[in-house]
Computed example of a mutant assay.
Amino acid sequence: MIGAARSPLMWVVHLSVLLLVLIWTLPTAGLLISSLRDKDQLAVSGWWTALSSSTRNDVFRAPTAEAQVERDGKFVISGNVRDSDAGTISAFGISSREPVAFKAGETADLSDGAKLTVQADGSFEIVSDTSMEGARGQRIFFTASTPPRFTLDNYREVMNASGIGASFINSLTVAIPSTIIPILIAAFAAYALAWMEFPGRSLLIAVVVGLLVVPLQMSLIPLLKLYNGVGGFLGVPAKTYMGIWLAHTGFGLPLAIYLLRNYMAGLPREIMESARVDGASDFDIFVKIILPLSFPALASFAIFQFLWTWNDLLVAMVFLGTGNNELVLTGRLVNLLGSRGGNWEILTASAFITIIVPLIVFFSLQRYLVRGLLAGSVKGG
């Protein structure tokens, strides 16, 4: 009876999980498909049409009368209305009011008595019994159907762009220390707040919780002024990696301390008491007991902190600069798009290039992430 009563609820849960998976997966799949599509097709149709032929309307102006040649007593202007990727011509016209008045292979009568024929492969001929005149060529409106095309050109354009390799190294130089430093500091602080008794501990915990709601944008300028003032006093250059490491450390510490403190506070007290009975100091307990047991929580925060620092652009621009030698990968890819977004078709390929390293980090530490999320959810009797 209990199983039967829970059955509808389980179906709701499973369907909800499936819906959430689809909501997160579909945009990613669309981004991947778009990154592999031809940029011309990407500009005129959505990724869900990637497996179907695309249709586009265009106009071509034929050569002027100077290009005509005499052939079998008639005067002919010939050429091809499409470029190499225009596909198959399905219809054409000689007026913007009727751009698809004729099917491919049919003949249209022009106003000067000449005749225009456009074939499916795009080739055309304008034939007249008399010599043609005019300073401008005939406009030919046409509809082209192009089969789906997939290519790696977008990835090649991004990878071959100048400075991509240096920016990739810059991003690694920023992200790795900016992940390790706050974890080291937060681990010590979390242990002290969880297991060491000292005056003002509750106040410090409240301050840490309060700092979680401070927006990064609000504290960015004061932190920069403080850093420049201290750096100027000590003779340290303003735009250095040390500055951005300290900035990311400051922004990441409140969350790191909060998460690690809550995790460490849930560890069994008996283990620490037994270690103290055996004469272990707080440092020994922290290094030999707390850190190994807290590795899932440390790995969980490392994933989130690395993702944040790897994808960051604002803090990097403020503390590291926008010079050609200091620009991180996200900044370099933004520059590739052009000042007005004219090369937006490479955005999809850029997105997948930037997530390669985070995916490696995530899949390497995911088992610890799951353990960290589930820790404490089940307790023994």
Rank of each mutant, 00 (worst) to 15 (best):
L329Y: 05
L320G: 07
F150K: 07
I289A: 09
Q305N: 11
D282V: 00
V100H: 06
H248D: 13
S128G: 07
L204K: 00
S123E: 12
F141T: 01
L298P: 04
L313M: 11
P237E: 09
V209P: 00
D85Q: 09
I180M: 13
N335K: 10
G79D: 04
A187G: 08
V100I: 01
F124V: 06
S350P: 14
V127G: 01
A280R: 09
G338A: 02
L329F: 04
L260Q: 06
M317S: 13
Q138D: 08
T49Y: 03
V334S: 10
S35Y: 09
K39Y: 15
A265T: 00
G229S: 15
K103D: 14
I244G: 05
T25N: 07
M196C: 03
A50P: 14
G165W: 11
G113R: 05
L31C: 14
L291M: 11
F92M: 06
S45Q: 12
K39F: 13
E98V: 04
I176P: 13
Y241K: 08
L18C: 12
L298D: 05
R367T: 09
L51I: 10
I221H: 01
A43M: 13
D38W: 08
Q41Y: 01
N262Y: 00
F286H: 11
Y258W: 07
A256T: 13
G122E: 04
T309I: 02
F142W: 04
T143M: 04
V378C: 00
